[in-house]
Design a protein around this nucleic acid. Sequence first.
DNA 1: TATTGTTATACTCTATAACTATA
DNA 2: TATAGTTATAGAGTATAACAATA
Lengths: 169, 169
Amino acid sequence: MGTPLPRDPIAEARRNWERHGWSDVAAPMAAITAIMRTQQILLARIENVLKPFGLTFARYELLALLSFARSGALPMNKASALLQVHPTSVTNAVDRLEKAALVTRSPHPTDGRTTLIELTAEGRTVSKRATAALNSEVFGQSGFSEDDVEELIRIFGIFRRNAGDFDDG
Amino acid sequence: MGTPLPRDPIAEARRNWERHGWSDVAAPMAAITAIMRTQQILLARIENVLKPFGLTFARYELLALLSFARSGALPMNKASALLQVHPTSVTNAVDRLEKAALVTRSPHPTDGRTTLIELTAEGRTVSKRATAALNSEVFGQSGFSEDDVEELIRIFGIFRRNAGDFDDG
DNA sequence: TATTGTTATACTCTATAACTATA
DNA sequence: TATAGTTATAGAGTATAACAATA
């Protein structure tokens, strides 16, 4: 968004916090602000790569999830739980993916309440291509060193478990 | 969003990537996915704390930025640059903050093109209270160890500089 | 009675393009 | 001609509540 700033704005915010009597929380404030900004940068890169495929990140995640299911199909509520998003978000994403003919809805064989989402052939192809693009253009040049990548996985693994995302250790 | 999963879904995604021939980028993929998820959790906590103040995170950030300006006022484009958001996003945020009587717009004394955003007395009060609430309820219990906080600041500092956010080192 | 999913509605933030006014 | 800001418009994700169908 425009030209680089002469100073790191988050480092400055940290100094502001310290200067105003919030020294005890200035560091975590800076860390959390940095997470927000980093996420924004990464999301922009990801969406940029996905745009040619007609996908957003939310829809890509659903597609990728389906592509790893043995049968290529998942119940709506399973997808909602695994992606950790609201059921209405899944409904929304499936609506759009279905319009794009990348997934189809089908009734569950035994439970009449649940709807299965299934990858179409084209959906599987698009998923593979989008994954290849993301891997080479984003994940393959993340800008994090190998050691730092493992640090991030460790730190956020602890955080997410403490936040109640999952149970195992 | 529902009950904890029995397994870490990001660790599982990493294994899926490795199993499908993407071993070389499985780790950064997992790290980036963890960043996305962590940001989501933190943003939800922040918005939850800010809701009683009638603020969103975007509006809070603008308020906090103004509260640290010596004069309590900033040009729109300066705010846009420092917050690293689109000018229309600033217009939008200022519109709402102005309706809430937390900021006012005033003409720049010498440059007729630019608009100054200024904190009202109430805006300053709300900013202080919201900051206190965030500090005690979010930043003060971030769930990251002190060492990990410094690690995050370091890692994301490098990342953001490489991404072109700022110039200094 | 509880669960699954959809619909309607509403509210974010974000971005592009077109436009006005000023430098 | 370039910059600052607004407006209109559009699209995204997310969430709550009400509802239908099924278990």
